[in-house]
């Protein structure tokens, strides 16, 4: 039996859940709350705002029985900003140009070693753990930012869904472990820390680097862009050598 009151509520829900407004607002609200929580935790790396927001939104979608497609109707406006945000890295790069020019040799060396290590190490570990060729292929471009990883997946005939999953998971992993790992190694050079974070864990690692230090963010963004280009050239070669 339905009362007019609950009927009206139902109509309201139908309107809200099909309009992009609701999920756009929820996405931004979840992230702002997660950032507040991260700040309260003193920027502790485990309290990663990206991870917290994703968990919160997944729970809300499950509780309300909303499918991803309706969610993305609203969230796509946030997703779209990834393009301009990539271009925005140019501003931070230009601002830190003196630092980048000073470190041009370490940057080149770390890129030329780091990019193949990112790709090779995951393929070799996946084989050691007995994972099948489908999953291994999709793991190969894991350190590259999602949109470009998908382009690489297309080239090496990897499953695009799995590739996106692994790239995002790698980004979050890197963002969470980079600070404790670098502290344990006693690395205080923020250029080096940022570069490693961006190379190993692309945009989410870069977001973490910007959370810590502007110069670290600039180096992370640079590493992300350089690694994306190099891995796109490298991945087909590595896989042709390693995969039967």
């Amino acid at each position: 039996m339905t009362t007019p009151q609950s009927e009206r509520f139902f109509e309201l829900w139908v309107f809200l859940s099909t309009s992009p407004l609701l999920w756009l607002t929820v996405t931004i609200g979840a992230f702002l709350t997660a950032q507040r929580i991260a700040a309260l935790a003193g920027g502790h790396p485990i309290v990663n705002p990206v991870l917290l927001s994703i968990i919160a939104i997944v729970v809300v979608l499950k509780l309300t029985g909303t499918d991803y497609r309706s969610y993305f109707e609203g969230a796509q406006f946030v997703h779209f900003a990834l393009g301009p945000a990539t271009v925005a890295l140019g501003v931070s790069l230009f601002r830190n140009r003196a630092l980048v020019r000073h470190d041009v040799l370490p940057i080149a060396a770390a890129l030329l070693v780091g990019a193949p290590v990112a790709c090779l190490s995951v393929v070799l570990l996946a084989r050691a753990f007995g994972l099948g060729p489908d999953i291994t292929l999709a793991l190969a471009p894991k350190s590259v930012t999602v949109s470009i990883a998908l382009g690489i997946a297309n080239e090496i005939h990897a499953d695009p869904g799995l590739t996106a999953v692994f790239a995002i998971a790698t980004g979050i992993t890197g963002a969470v472990i980079v600070t404790p790992l670098m502290n344990a190694l006693g690395i205080r050079d923020y250029a080096a820390r940022g570069f490693a974070a961006g190379l190993a864990s692309h945009g989410i690692g870069t977001a973490r680097a910007f959370q810590v230090d502007d110069a670290a963010g600039a180096f992370a963004g640079l590493a992300m862009a350089l690694n994306a280009v190099l891995t796109a050239l490298l991945a087909p070669v590595v896989l042709a050598l390693l995969m039967p």
Binding site: D103, L105, P106, I107, A109, A110, V113, G114, V117, A118, S121, V122, L125, A126, A128, F129, G130, L131, G132, I135, L139, K142, S143, F166, A169, T170, T173, G174, I177, V178, L181, M182, L185, I187, D189, A191, A192, R193, F195, A196, A197, L199, A200, S201, A223
Partner: peptide, 28 residues
């Protein structure tokens, strides 16, 4: 395969971070 994938992913990310930062510092 969740566990094996997770192990490969975390392991490789840690290796990549350490190798990259080490090369950067050595050359620098």
């Amino acid at each position: 395969q969740l566990l094996a994938v997770g192990a490969a992913l975390v392991g490789s990310t840690a290796i990549t971070l350490v190798v990259t930062v080490a090369v950067f510092r050595l050359v620098s």
